[in-house]
Amino acid sequence: MDVNDKIHAQLVKAGVRLAASLPDDWVNTLIRRISRDNQIHHVPVCREAETIAICAGAFFGGVRAVAIFGNTGLLTCTGEMATLCLRHAIPVFCIVSGRGSIDDHKVYQEVQGRRTIPLLQAYDYPFRIIDKEEEIEDIPNAYEWHRLQKRPFVLFLTKKLLGTAA
């Protein structure tokens, strides 16, 4: 069982039954695994903010959902996370690639690496960075906690964690 299998398994353990996603190199393997799992309904979208609203709608259908996309996409949808989720106190669980890190040398990711965390802090969106395999087991706890927090929550996956899959 590799890292992506473990993340997938912990999402299932947390009760996730719907995943909305937009590809990013680092999370594509996870997206492919989930799309093959009949227990989780997969919704590919056109832009990341759709995942936020889809997960919010699923919340009211009593279905646990997850939004999966890249760090660049996170920057694009913080407004919708605020005006929909903060406004109505709706929890949305996001899994995001921690792009722009010290070991990510793509020039188009450098701003994301510098400004994403300060931006989340400005909005008071809780987040957790996972870069060790043993921390993957915290996902079910994180899921319960984000419901209690009643707001968007971001779980960053690092290149160190994803290894060659990244």
Partner: peptide, 21 residues
């Protein structure tokens, strides 16, 4: 549900809801 924000995304919210029920 009378959405007060997220302009443009009521349809996405409704899709997530529809898939769930």
């Amino acid at each position: 549900f009378y959405m007060h924000g997220g302009m443009g995304f009521a349809a996405s919210f409704a899709l997530g809801l529809a898939l769930s029920i």
